[in-house]
Design a binder for these strands. Structure first.
Length: 160
RNA sequence: AUAGUAGGUCGUCUUAUCGCGCUGUCGCAAGGCAGUGAGGAAAGUCUGGGCAACGCAGAGCGUCGGCCUUCCGAAAGAAAGGCGUCCGUGAGGGUGCAGUAGGACAGAAGAAAACAACCGCCGCGCAAGCGGUAAGGGUGAGAAGGCGGUGUAAGAGACCACCAAUGCUGCGGGCGACCGUGGCAGUUGUGUCCCUGCCGAGUUGAAAGGUCAUGUAUAUCGUAAUCCGCAAGGGCAAGGCUGCUCGUCUUGUUUUUGGAAACAAAAGUUGCGAGGGGUGGACCGAUGGUGAUUGCAGGUGACUGCAAUUCGAGAUAAAUGAUAAGACAUUGCUCCGGCAAUGACAGAACUUGGCUUAUAGACCUGCUAUCUUU
RNA sequence: GCCCGGAUGGCGGAAUCGGUAGACGCGCUGGUCUCAAACACCAGUAGGUUCACCCCUGUGCCGGUUCGACCCCGGCUCCGGGUA
């Protein structure tokens, strides 16, 4: 509990700093959004992600990703709560919303680190927790996964 | 006060910041602003409608469902009121018999599951046995209604009185099921199914279906028909009409070659089956309806009528969320200042009536039994 | 979202328009055979509980109908399948 409080205190301070920066230098406004263009929902792209079968795991969260070379940088995310693990629709909704919120508040970790390489990054978060997940756990796991993903993307771009 | 019974209501709230869906609006755009955004069960999918597609001359047989009665309702209905019956001290709760003319079956047990004789009883007989008997015993869910008498060799509705049930019938009450009461008929075993009668039921579900865009293929393979007649028409094949039959409707029945003809071959057409290719989008359907709330009136009640007010999610890899602070409720600890934990069941997917199931906690109402006090 | 099917011993799987539950196969246990084992043969095998009998409880769970339910009816749980 103390740990999570520390985390949120840190996060809110970060946000306040950026909102103060709005007044001073208005060009670098940081917004925590998750728009529809960032949703991964095409069957073909999902098939690509699952065929590449590259995954990593932190805590109860699993991430499957694929890096596709294209003209300009873009990314699409999806959040999955399997019916085999989460039997009730309430639990599935809850886990997906927590993951989405955690991604929304932490996606700058990846976007800041990677820059603008000419690739399309596709990834899926899968909730595999058997006990109810808190937002603090989800946020920590998502941020760690995003740092790992940005390292992978950077390495991939170097190889290109 | 305790225990119970029947039913109903609510089922966390407020503020701030960030974020998401939809609608409106501003903007070239990025985006801004405003409004709005889960339930009593949204769940299970057990049922009835609306709506949509396919089908739509009809008849018979079959299949499935319903059948105590009145009423409510579009229908379903484990709805409401009643009646019968069973359970409960009680409030209440469970349940339901259309018809019996006919047929079938009923393991084990038992002599026998309806033309019946094991023990027993009686008669005949020296005995073996033969005949009579359904009172008594035992088996069983069920053994010819119960009980008392007459009667008899012993017995039996064989006969009689009373009682219970059934059928016919008179009178009274009730819209009716039915209830009360009288007469006649000795008519009287239990359960299930068939059967008979009346009423009802087309199939498939919004991934239904429609429009637009893109791409197109009638690929290909197998199989059936391709016949007679100048014609009308008939025949044949396939398909539709509820599962089957009759009947009926629709579609096809064409061309070439060889042959005197029967016929054969090839192509085409139609139907069926197998199998391959493309798309994987947008919009409509799709959220105002048999609506909801309040009041008045009618009814025992389900419910109905009138008036007023009100419009409140609409997604589609699928929004309705996160955090912080505070309040509220419960539980635990307590130095009575507080501190800590918890906040049920559960998430719309075309819509709606009912049913079923899950629900922390709180509240309200009617009624019953027992006890105490007055 | 919609529509179907299933659950029987340690395992697979019979028994079904209600009538003694566990056929059959695999496995397991005991015995015979062998120096010992395998194979083979014989017997047993749902649980309580075994040497055997009796008794009780048993067809996923909870109710109902019936004299009697794996079977019929209603509800719940779990598993599986189909569907543009």
């Amino acid at each position: 509990m103390c740990k999570s409080k520390m985390f949120f205190a840190d996060n809110t301070i970060h946000y306040i700093c950026t909102s103060n920066a709005v007044f001073s230098m208005s060009q670098t406004i940081r917004r925590y959004t998750y728009k529809r263009a960032e949703h991964l929902k095409q069957q073909k792209l999902i098939d690509i992600v699952f065929q590449q079968n590259k995954s990593m795991r932190v805590g109860p969260l699993k991430m499957i990703y694929a890096i596709v070379p294209t003209d300009s940088f873009s990314y699409q995310v999806a959040f999955v709560a399997p019916k085999k693990i989460h039997h009730l629709a309430v639990d599935r909704n809850r886990n997906k919303r927590l993951m989405r919120e955690a991604f929304r508040l932490n996606r700058h970790i990846m976007t800041d680190a990677v820059g603008q390489p000419p690739v399309q990054v596709l990834f899926i978060f899968i909730a595999q927790n058997t006990e109810p997940m808190t937002f603090a756990d989800a946020s920590a796991c998502v941020s760690r996964l995003l740092t790992q993903l940005s390292e992978k993307v950077a390495k991939n771009c170097v190889n290109l």
